[in-house]
């Protein structure tokens, strides 16, 4: 079966800096892929390339065999790739439910009116915010803002979900809730790319991992394999410890 997403030679240059250098990987249906690596290794940039926030310098990205590189962010979203942001982005003038509806109206699978409202309510229930639809955004706790963003992203029925450090900044209790939530998405059979630093989450959630360092892919495999790979350890900890 053809992969949901495939990157071939994906490269992004900012002036003289090569932020992402010839990355190749595939994501199969129902797979949770972890994109990991030290700070500044190009993970988020890769995610931005997939979602259309940035355009490729060279290489290609295909969604179910059809090229999406070069499309605008809204067109990529409409084709079924939805993302969260590293720093949560919500719509401050709207309540929780409208924030979720925002994801449902213009996306991959479109809903409007009562259908969108009901769907938003069910998603809020799904992410653990049942009954909070009327709350203003300003009154939410940190993890709840992340839940709203996740619900908004799910609202378009994406083929592929991109989570950019969705678990970052949560306290230990929240983290357990967060991991459980993503696990439940995985159990639904969703296809997900996770950019993540939290090792517990990577071990328990990812089917496979791609490790990046200085813009290039240095390892790929199951979480167990890559986390014991000497190249990966060197990238995280430096040469002396390898």
């Amino acid at each position: 079966m053809s992969p949901v997403l495939s990157l071939r030679g994906a490269t992004k240059r900012f002036g003289g800096l090569v932020a992402v250098n010839g990355i190749d990987f595939d994501v199969a249906e129902h797979q949770v892929l972890g994109l990991i690596g030290p700070n500044g290794s190009g993970k988020s940039t890769t995610l931005n390339l997939i979602s259309g926030a940035l355009t490729l310098t060279s290489g290609s990205i295909k969604l179910r065999g059809a090229p999406i590189s070069g499309l605008a962010a809204q067109d990529i979203t409409r084709r079924g790739v939805s993302r969260t942001f590293q720093l949560v982005r919500l719509l401050p003038s709207m309540n929780v439910r409208d924030n979720v509806i925002a994801g449902a109206v213009f996306g991959h699978r479109r809903r409007w009116g009562a259908e969108a409202r009901d769907f938003a309510e069910s998603l809020l229930e799904r992410v653990g915010l049942g009954g909070k639809g009327q709350m203003p955004i300003g009154q939410l706790t940190y993890i709840d803002t992340k839940r709203v963003e996740l619900a908004r992203v799910l609202a378009s029925d994406p083929t592929l979900l991109l989570l950019d450090e969705w678990l970052a900044g949560l306290n230990p209790t929240e983290l357990q809730d967060g991991i459980a939530l993503i696990k439940s998405l995985r159990d639904e059979g969703r296809t997900i790319i996770l950019v993540e630093h939290v090792m517990d989450a990577i071990r328990s959630l990812c089917d496979r991992c791609v490790v990046m360092s200085s813009g290039t892919k240095i390892a790929e495999g199951t979480p167990g394999e890559v986390l014991s790979d000497p190249n990966v350890i060197r990238a995280y900890l430096g040469d002396d410890d390898a």
Binding site: A53, T77, R83, R89, S93, I101
Partner: peptide
């Protein structure tokens, strides 16, 4: 309408709007 809703989203955050599938 959807157009009105889209514009409220754009007014709040244009990046979110684009990533929600809106042709801003």
């Amino acid at each position: 309408s959807r157009l009105g809703f889209a514009l409220r989203i754009i007014g709040d955050d244009e990046t979110v709007a684009a990533h929600s599938g809106i042709n801003t």
